[in-house]
């Protein structure tokens, strides 16, 4: 085949067009994502020697590894975030399935709206709402006492369960939306065919509905996991003295201890954690990152 000059030129033009098309994305990525992280990475390798004197070193990472309180909080945050993601998924799935496949045309937007309403208030207000519900002098404790189920005030705040509850609540919408999206494209006839050929509810769910929803599941889980791991307000407020979230450690390094290098190292560890878990999640479910993004 002989390449005609004109076709070559058009190929070049095409490439240039592609480049120009991608330029804003690359710029965005570079300026807003990569540059700050490079700065944080550089900062995380500097150690304070004396006032205003810093040197290169791995001290901040060694500090992280050597000090149990830091890596324990880190591991705890990772574990609880995965737990929160799983619980959110398990709760959101039936809701999304109902909205996507069983709700009638009229009730669908209404149901979606109901999922959306809590998000009109800021996270802070929502969390305060939970605090009012769960605190010792709060609504739930009052109702329990009225119903005779509790003899005195019950404190339901400031424990892991309340943190998980708040985080699941905050993550639900971000799970329901991609799940509903994914499930809406599932033809109802396929579900029926699943039953028609002898499948039980479990079989239909496992072999037809879940595989179809997989891109939504992965996309929702990634979003919820990232939001959870990086959350600050909810664990601090609902967890109280036992909150212990890794973002709090980062905050305290940056803000209360003015130790930016240490905070940067922590921040980098968190980024690493998110990346590894997302990668593992994609790997385990056999989903491609690009495809997931497209379907989400």
């Amino acid at each position: 085949m002989t390449a005609l000059p004109s076709s070559e030129r058009s190929l070049f033009a095409e490439k240039l067009g592609l480049f120009l098309l991608l330029a804003p994305a690359v710029l965005w990525l570079g300026v807003l994502v990569i540059l700050p992280h490079v700065e944080i990475a550089v900062l995380s390798f500097s150690e304070r020697i004396a006032p205003r004197v810093y040197a290169f070193g791995f001290g901040n990472y060694l500090e992280f590894l050597g000090e149990p309180i830091y890596w324990r909080t880190f591991a705890r945050t990772a574990f609880l975030s995965i737990l929160v993601t799983l619980i959110t998924l398990v709760i959101s799935f039936p809701v999304a399935l109902y909205i996507a496949k069983f709700a009638s045309g009229k009730s669908k937007p209404l149901l979606f709206l109901m999922c959306l309403i809590p998000f009109w208030a800021s996270e802070l207000v929502r969390t305060l709402g939970w605090m009012m519900m769960l605190r010792e002098t709060g609504v739930l404790s009052f109702l329990l006492q009225k119903a005779g189920l509790a003899s005195g005030p019950v404190e339901m705040l400031y424990n892991d369960a309340s943190v998980v509850l708040g985080l699941v609540y905050g993550g639900m919408l971000f799970m329901i939306v991609p799940l509903t999206n994914a499930l809406e494209s599932l033809e109802t006839a396929q579900i029926e065919a699943g039953y028609d050929l002898g499948g039980s509810h479990l079989t239909v769910l496992r072999r037809i509905i879940i595989p179809h929803a997989m891109p939504g599941i992965v996309a929702g889980s990634i979003v919820v996991f990232m939001l959870t791991v990086g959350n600050f307000v909810t664990p601090v407020m609902l967890g109280g003295k036992n909150g212990l979230w890794f973002t709090e450690q980062i905050y305290s390094q940056f803000i209360t201890r003015f130790n930016w290098p240490q905070g940067s190292a922590f921040g980098f560890m968190l980024l690493l954690l998110s990346t590894v878990i997302v990668w593992l999640g994609l790997r385990l479910t056999g989903q491609g990152f690009a495809e997931t993004l497209r379907k989400a």
Partner: peptide
Amino acid sequence: PAGLEAIEGKVLDKVKSAN
């Protein structure tokens, strides 16, 4: 004095993360 806050900060971190 400069430096003391780092000591205090770490003690506070430990207190906060103790169970």
